[in-house]
Design a protein around this nucleic acid. Structure first.
Length: 360
DNA sequence: GTATGCTTTCGGC
DNA sequence: TTACGGCCGAAAGCATAC
């Protein structure tokens, strides 16, 4: 079973202020550069119907909604995390295994609870929807199917506030008419290439010789596409332990290549990821930087060490070095946004203290 | 050839 | 007409070891 909280950030805001519910609600990430510089994070369905969706510039959203009595709000991550944590804790109780994906999605293993009686799937789905509604006053869209791929596709089939059950014998007729882009793992790029081959629906994709798909998309990708189109997926619902990476990214006051302007901000980001790592009790083996240029192209560099560290100085120095190297190798375009990332995170376990894991 | 690990890019939300 | 965030995990692509 796949549970997806509907238009999550915007719905949290509606919940806090019910008078928003009939208006377009636009949750924004303001970059701070100019008054309305930034991008749209999430919108409610009123705004979506008017064409305002995730990812567009805030100024564009304002233009589209200028006569629509719309409400523009800055993201309030603290609120969303609180609501998410409460719901995720609740959801755990409805499955034999639980896998959270991001802040607003989860898979539940309910195979044993259904026990082959598929009419029970709908009951469990309704129970979960009502539990979320009762506890946190939020609607959700739920999909139930024989595997994660079908459950995920099913939860997307009817939203918001949907419940779609796809029994094993219904998988083929469920998938067949869908556009290939609805399959998890088929993005814009793959969709385009398939369209050029005359493949638009999952039914058409399922008919393609897997050998041919492997030749065109590589072995692992080709095999995945063939299996996905045929509703085959063996991925287990797996408990995810802590985070795998910690990153912070920010927009510079002005586009520049001047390290005198970049380094103070880079140092600030280094400090922030360091604080997050320490709070989480995690060491790191990799430090990386991210540069987003004025044309919005994205570049990254990273370095991995043999031994984990937890030192701010290490992050700061490596980030500075990587940035200097990057700028030296990369033409003359200005940088717009910069970021620092920690990965290969190491969780100290058992009796050993973190210090035992850290390099000399 | 296969497995593994690292770096970079992709793409969802 | 243009406009433009901040995260995350997965995948791709490559190198190395066995």
């Amino acid at each position: 079973m796949h549970v997806d909280l509907d238009y999550f950030f915007a719905q949290c805001e509606e919940r806090e202020n019910l008078s928003l519910r009939d208006k377009p609600v636009v949750v924004c990430v303001y970059s701070g550069r100019t008054a309305d510089s930034g991008a749209v994070s999430t919108t409610n369905y009123v705004a979506r119907r008017l064409g305002v969706k995730s990812g567009i510039p805030i100024v564009m959203a304002k233009k589209i909604l200028k006569d629509a009595d719309a409400v523009f709000l800055p993201v309030n991550h603290g609120l969303y995390e609180k609501v998410s944590n409460s719901i995720m804790t609740l959801l755990r109780g409805y499955g034999d295994r639980f896998e959270q994906v991001g802040i607003d999605e989860a898979y539940l293993e309910v195979t044993e609870r259904i026990g082959g009686r598929w009419e029970k799937a709908r009951e469990i789905g309704l129970t979960v929807k009502n539990a979320i509604l009762d506890a946190e006053r939020l609607t959700s869209s739920i999909g139930v199917g024989p595997n994660k791929l079908i459950a995920k596709t099913a939860s997307d089939f009817q939203k918001p506030d949907g419940l779609t059950v796809v029994q094993p014998q219904e998988v083929k007729s469920f998938l067949s008419p869908l556009p290939v882009g609805k399959l998890y793992g088929v993005g814009k790029k793959t969709e385009q290439r398939l369209a050029e081959m005359g493949v638009k629906t999952v039914e058409e994709l399922a008919k393609i010789d897997p050998q041919e798909l492997c030749a065109l998309f590589g072995k692992s990708n080709g095999l995945y596409l063939h299996n996905a189109a045929n509703g085959i997926d063996e991925e287990p619902v797996r408990e995810r332990e802590g985070r795998e990476q910690i990153s912070r990214i920010a927009t510079l006051k002005q586009n520049t290549r001047d390290t005198q302007l970049i380094f103070p901000e880079l140092d600030r980001l280094s400090q922030e990821v360091h604080t997050k790592a320490v709070e989480a009790g995690l060491g790191f083996r990799s430090v990386g930087i991210i540069a987003i240029m004025e044309d919005l192209s994205i570049h990254s560099r990273s370095r991995t060490f043999e031994n984990p560290s937890q030192e701010l100085n290490k992050i700061r120095n490596v980030a500075r070095e990587l940035f200097t190297q990057f700028l030296g190798s990369d033409g003359e375009m200005n940088v717009r946004r910069i970021g620092v990332k920690l990965s290969n995170l190491v969780k100290p376990t058992g009796q050993k203290a973190l210090s035992d894991f850290l390099g000399a």
